[in-house]
Nucleic acid binder design. Structure first.
Lengths: 154, 154
DNA sequence: TTTTCATGTAACTTATATAGTTACATGAGT
DNA sequence: ACTCATGTAACTATATAAGTTACATGAAAA
């Protein structure tokens, strides 16, 4: 299976939006994420529906965060991209007649649900503000002199 | 991504092998798992390398468990099918230059690793004997009269 | 010793999901 | 009117699991 990297990608994009003065166009954001503007618009449209970002058309248009960084959890973002499948594994049959398979499925299902619950709980604990603070720390470590540096080379 | 159901499928097959007197052919096992014999042979060949099953060619040949049910954990089986990816999500870039992306990746990576560790730990706690006992319980609930029933209709 | 049966394995096809691209409509500002 | 940016449908590319075909290998039975 090709693994889903939308959450990782879109968090990156959101933090860039936060650093950017005024609206960011999907073209600029796509460059930061090294992908196509349509991919950005597609993903961000989900976040717009959830009130995480806003978009404007035309001159001076683009995307802005609709809430404070501290008010956006990874869980919010995950939900806004339509809660993609977390686990790469599955039970072969969802509701098998075979009692052997039922026993197997029940055991696996337990573990799967625990792992999913743990992931979602972690996502709920982390806000974009947390990530932004971590970024600032990394920036200071890398460029100790500069108070507020550039973000990257794109 | 298409989700991996090999673990679920092969556990089912192993328990059927345990119930079956003498060697089970890949054709019989494939019928139980509703798939192709080659798929069974392909997966079981990994388990053979780990000493979980043995196979014999020719008349009266087929597959048998090489160890006691209590000596085979789900973790053993998982490893034997080559430790497939557990999580359906990925970081977009593994070692990004961008500090923003590094902060994002680090946060996600933490959660991902916790979830994976939890799954593997659970797999390590459960043996085929556990699953077999659960199966027996289900059997008794479904057919209270019978001491030792058939397994299923395949 | 030939036939039958079962595994071993390579090569190919199918199915499914993410990601990327093209093309064009819509609407806001200049 | 012209430009810029989003909105979105439709198509293509890519990756991975799963299923299938075909045939070689080797063991037991006839």
């Amino acid at each position: 299976m090709k693994r889903d990297s939308r959450l990782s990608g879109i968090l990156h994009v959101l933090l860039h939006m936060a650093e950017h003065e005024g609206p960011s166009t999907s073209e600029i954001l796509a460059r930061a994420m090294q992908t196509n503007p349509v991919v950005i618009r597609r993903i961000l449209s989900g976040l717009r529906e959830r009130g995480i970002v806003r978009s404007e058309k035309g001159h001076g248009g683009g995307w802005v965060l609709a809430r404070d960084l501290g008010e956006i959890t990874l869980r919010d973002v995950y939900d806004a991209i339509d809660s993609p499948t977390l686990l790469a594994m599955n039970n072969r049959t969802e509701t098998p007649d075979c009692l052997v398979e039922q026993a197997v499925n029940a055991a696996l299902e337990d573990s799967f649900q625990e792992a999913e619950a743990l992931l979602l709980a972690r996502f709920g604990e982390v806000t974009l503000k947390t990530l932004h603070a971590d970024f600032q720390t990394r920036l200071t470590r890398t460029h100790p002199k500069r108070k507020k540096g550039h973000v990257h080379e794109h």
